[in-house]
């Protein structure tokens, strides 16, 4: 009897403690939530937001390396110079837009097509998927060095192949006309990341939709056009956005492949190389900051435009259901 009473008391204490904890947790759930995201948020503030704001501030100054104390405030002078006196601004912007105008769609299409193939039910598919993804885990520097070998005019694999089939060799890295196509070609190398996302998207498409299409006599083409592509538009949208943002910021591979001057006639001088040169070669950090703010604004506006237009071409299943 006494033992039962003791147990009941213990249970009650336990319940009381649990209840109090649960109540405390519920009352403070917002704070606890914030505590969980604090590490990320702190990192965001320290490594992203603060440098961004400081960069914005620097863009209105004549900050040069070694400026002691407060750098001199010059208002919009850097921005005026960019649009009126900097010939390389328009040149580097043109090169960058050309690059991403071709590389982003090509990479999307290539990654999508490969993902479609890798989504087939074929024996040993895991191996193929791994093989196609492997290039993406090769560091960009190593991949670029390998590519430089491929693109070598005299001894490169690509030209050897072209000669073998009777075509004219291409001066991939020495001709101003071929520099940008070479960079676009190189951009296809790391398609594996996008391919994996596409593959995940493809595998989330309900099988019964394909079965229904088959019953209705839909061909493979019909299934691709009327089921796969529409249902993949959110994934295409996501990859497109990442591709655009990454395309504008292309730097490392160009830096390694053709150097900071952008190759012959600066045909490969992309925007980030220009930003880099202004900062680290000319030590004009204020001006370089202004260039990077311009880039941010361009990417921001373009992203907004893509997001805004996405209502017209991105198919979200849930929204459709609501309408039904």
């Amino acid at each position: 009897m006494a033992q039962a009473s003791l147990k009941a008391k213990h249970d009650q204490t336990d319940i009381t403690w649990k209840t109090r904890f649960q109540e405390w947790w519920f009352r403070n759930r917002a704070l606890i939530g914030f505590a969980f995201i604090l590490p990320w948020f702190a990192g965001f503030i320290i490594f992203d937001a603060a440098p961004f704001i400081y960069n914005l501030y620097l863009s209105f100054t004549d900050y040069q390396i070694g400026t002691v104390g407060t750098p001199p405030w010059i208002g919009l002078e850097n921005y005026t110079k960019i649009f009126t006196a900097d010939k390389l601004f328009s040149k580097s912007m043109y090169n960058t837009v050309y690059y991403l105008g071709f590389s982003v769609p090509l990479r999307l299409i290539f990654a999508f097509l490969v993902a479609l193939i890798l989504n087939l039910r074929v024996r040993g598919m895991e191996l193929y998927r791994t093989l196609f993804y492997v290039p993406s885990v090769v560091p960009l520097v190593a991949a670029t060095v390998i590519f430089a070998g491929f693109l070598n005019t005299r001894y490169g694999f690509l030209n050897q192949f072209l000669v073998l089939i009777g075509a004219m060799p291409v001066r991939w890295l020495s001709s101003p006309d071929a520099i940008k196509p070479s960079l676009i070609l190189l951009s296809l190398w790391g398609f594996g990341g996008q391919m994996i996302i596409f593959l995940a998207g493809l595998q989330s498409i309900p099988e019964d939709l394909y079965e229904a299409a088959a019953i209705d006599g839909g061909t493979g083409w019909h299934r691709l056009v009327y089921i796969t592509v529409p249902l993949m538009t959110p994934t295409i949208f996501f990859n497109l956005l990442l591709g655009l943002i990454g395309g504008f910021q292309v730097f490392e591979q160009v830096f390694i492949l053709i150097g900071t001057n952008g190759g012959p006639l600066q045909a490969g001088l992309v925007y980030m190389l220009h930003v880099y040169n202004k900062a680290f070669r000319d030590f004009e950090f204020g001006y370089s900051a202004a260039l990077s703010v311009i880039l941010f604004l361009i990417i921001f506006v373009l992203t907004l435009m893509v997001v805004y237009t996405s209502n017209r071409w991105v198919f979200y299943g849930d929204a459709q259901d609501d309408e039904i």
């Binding site: 005019t153 890295l173 020495s174 001709s175």
Partner: peptide, 11 residues
């Protein structure tokens, strides 16, 4: 031409 020179010394 200049491209020949660049190719000759490439890499």
């Amino acid at each position: 031409g200049v491209e020949n020179v660049a190719d000759f010394f490439q890499d």
